[in-house]
């Protein structure tokens, strides 16, 4: 709790909040549209009556015109719970300044929190590495965002990643269907990770995987003699990176394709985020896809 109240943390949280708000305000955000068809005021379509339908929803005007029983369908607006899952393992520390993966992930998490709360939905924050480190329950209160920001700022990576068990754990704990935003560099076992994602999907959650990668991880632009020191384990490798680069890129590509294919198979939204790109750009792209909203 000390971290939360630390002036520096607060200041950084304010900066984070400012950045996140800037990103979010840059978007023209409409009401959150439920994926479920309900009976709200916003008409969607007619459909033919089938026995068993509630007689209240028969459109008698249409019957008057066509002498056929049709049912009026409306889009339902609902409140939902968004769950932010932030990977704070040591591997997320890679990168300098704005391209630091964890900072980028925090900004993304903050932006998403703003977005969700701004839509009057509730949002929870779950920070993890090999285990849950910080967990803030879902809340739709505007002040909740500040709490999230403070929590994010106080995150200090400690261990290596182990996402899959935690996803299973979350799927067990959260019964109500909601949106799950997993923000991670996904340096983990892919089948296990996909298994966890599948579990969440099975529970009815809509899952989005924000895969955070540093540009150097994507391009591997090193030269000369380099000793790579593993951030999550005690391992050092001395090599000439320029010689292994193609093999590295092939391995990365294979991994990404495997991950993307797994996400697609499980209907998980996969968003690859290169920390070299501005977050807003990537996020807008995602939201445009996700919300099917025209961005002006």
């Amino acid at each position: 709790m000390t971290n939360y109240l630390h002036p520096d943390v607060i200041a950084r949280a304010q900066v984070l909040g400012l950045k996140a708000r800037t990103i979010v305000e840059g978007l023209r955000v409409g009401d959150h549209r439920s994926p479920y068809r309900g009976f709200s005021v916003e008409f969607v379509q007619h459909r033919e009556y089938v026995p068993g339908d509630d007689l209240r929803y028969i459109d008698w005007k249409s019957y008057g015109r066509s002498e056929r029983y049709t049912i009026k369908q409306y889009e339902q607006e609902t409140n939902f719970a968004g769950h932010l899952l932030l990977d704070a393992s040591r591997s997320m520390l890679y990168g300098e300044g704005a391209t630091n993966k964890l900072e980028y992930a925090k900004l993304l998490a903050a932006a998403l929190a703003y977005l969700v709360v701004h839509q009057r939905d509730s949002v929870s924050l779950n920070v993890f590495d090999a285990d849950w480190r910080e967990r803030l329950p879902a809340s739709g209160q505007p002040g909740h965002v500040q709490t999230i920001l403070h929590t994010l700022e106080s995150v200090e990576p400690r261990e290596k990643t182990a996402i899959a068990p935690l996803l299973h754990d979350l799927a067990q704990q959260v019964r109500r269907r909601g949106l799950v935003f997993l923000i991670s560099d996904c340096i983990d076992d892919v089948p296990a990770l996909l298994d966890g994602l599948q579990h969440l999907r099975f529970q009815g959650h809509e899952v989005t995987l924000f895969h955070i990668l540093h540009p150097e991880e994507v391009e591997f632009p090193f030269g000369g003699m380099v000793k790579f020191d593993a951030m999550e384990e005690k391992l050092q490798l001395l090599t000439r990176p320029q010689l292994v680069r193609p093999a590295y890129l092939r391995a990365l590509d294979k991994y990404l394709r495997e991950l993307q294919a797994g996400c697609e198979a499980n209907r998980v939204d996969y968003v690859l985020m290169n920390t070299a790109k501005p977050l807003a750009e990537t996020l807008i792209g995602y939201l445009a896809r996700r919300l099917k909203v025209r961005i002006v």
Binding site: I187, E217, G224, F228, A230, M231, Y248, Y255
Partner: peptide, 16 residues
């Protein structure tokens, strides 16, 4: 050599 802390060790290990 240059010491570089590295996250994506998994891919590097595979490539090496």
């Amino acid at each position: 050599y240059r010491l570089v802390p590295w996250a994506a060790m998994k891919f590097l290990l595979t490539s090496i």
